[in-house]
C-alpha cells in the first residue's frame, strides 16, 4: 500500500502521535484508565498500522525480529525480576513495600516497573503475532 498516497501521508503524520499516546497510556495507568497492557496494544497497533501501509518488509526493518524476540522475553523478565527484587530485599515475592524506603513509594515504583514490563512484552508480542500472520501470506502467496 506504499503507493496509497493519501494513506501514506496520513499515516506518516499520525504515527508519532499514536506512539506518544501509547506511552502516555503506559505512564498514566496509575491515574486514569490504561496501563501496561493497553499501552502495549496501542503501541503494537501503531506498528501494525505502519506495516499495513508501508509493507511488512519495511516494518521488519524498523523492528527486527531478534529485537522483538528479546523484548518479548525482557518484559516478562522485568516483571519477574521485580518479584525477585522484593524477595531479595527481604519481603515476599512481588512485595513492593521493600523496594523503596517507605512502602507507598515502594508500591508506586513496583507498579510502574511491573506495568512497564507488561507494556514491553505485550507490544512486542502483538507485533510478532501480526508480523507472523502478514509475512506468512506474502511468502506463501
Amino acid at each position: 500500500m506504499q503507493r496509497h498516497l493519501v494513506l501514506r501521508v496520513t499515516t506518516k503524520l499520525l504515527m508519532p502521535f499514536i506512539l506518544l499516546f501509547a506511552l502516555y497510556v503506559q505512564f498514566h495507568g496509575d491515574f486514569g484508565p490504561g496501563g501496561g497492557f493497553q499501552a502495549g496494544v496501542i503501541f503494537g497497533a501503531g506498528f501494525i498500522l505502519y506495516a499495513l501501509v508501508y509493507g511488512i518488509k519495511n516494518a521488519r526493518l524498523v523492528a527486527p525480529d531478534y529485537v522483538i524476540r528479546v523484548l518479548i522475553a525482557a518484559g516478562l523478565l522485568l516483571y519477574i525480576g521485580v518479584g525477585f527484587a522484593g524477595l531479595f530485599l527481604g519481603g515476599k515475592f512481588l512485595d513492593y513495600n521493600v523496594l523503596a524506603s517507605d512502602p507507598v513509594s515502594g508500591q508506586h515504583l513496583g507498579i510502574l516497573l511491573v506495568e512497564l514490563g507488561v507494556g514491553v512484552t505485550v507490544a512486542a508480542t502483538m507485533i510478532t503475532v501480526f508480523f507472523a500472520f502478514a509475512a506468512r501470506g506474502r511468502d506463501e502467496g
Partner: peptide, 14 residues
C-alpha cells in the same frame, strides 16, 4: 496503600 488513584491499577499491579 499504593499511592495510585486508579484502584483497578492498584489491585491489578499490586
Amino acid at each position: 496503600a499504593t499511592g495510585v488513584p486508579n484502584i483497578v491499577t492498584a489491585v491489578l499491579a499490586s
